[in-house]
């Protein structure tokens, strides 16, 4: 485990930053794809919304893993638990608000 990690750190030190470049291109592709689905296609509204929100979540995870190195550190489990809890509360706030207010007049 420890050897594996040091190997990975060394690889990251040398050579072309492939991880970053791939992350950038996937992000740009997802952005343009989401724009095309929303503006170019005329799918039913709820289908479009589901797809673009899915693409946004996917893109956020790319940032988290490819750029933010969320799995690094002495004990990355601490920050991962913190972030998962943050995502959970933020999701509960947004989804809960929309859900409750969908039933008002």
């Amino acid at each position: 485990m420890s050897e594996n990690q040091s190997q990975m750190t060394k690889q990251e030190h040398a050579g072309f930053p492939w991880k970053q470049v791939i992350g950038l291109f996937i992000s740009l592709a997802l952005t343009v794809l989401a724009l095309w689905i929303a503006v170019g296609l005329s799918l039913p509204v709820h289908v479009t919304l589901t797809i673009i929100v899915g693409l946004a979540i996917f893109q956020a995870f790319i940032q988290l893993f490819m750029f933010m190195h969320v799995t690094e550190g002495t004990e990355p489990v601490h920050q991962i638990i913190g972030i998962i809890f943050g995502i959970y509360v933020a999701f509960a706030v947004v989804a809960g608000t929309l859900w409750i207010l969908a039933y008002t007049i």
Binding site: H78, Q79, G82, I83, G86, A90, V93, V94
Partner: peptide, 22 residues
């Protein structure tokens, strides 16, 4: 690690603003 916890709190802040906007 503490900064990650701060970012988690920021996430919740923006969550409230997104909820309001939507």
């Amino acid at each position: 690690v503490g900064f990650w916890i701060f970012l988690a709190a920021e996430l919740v802040l923006f969550g409230t603003l997104f909820g309001t906007y939507l």
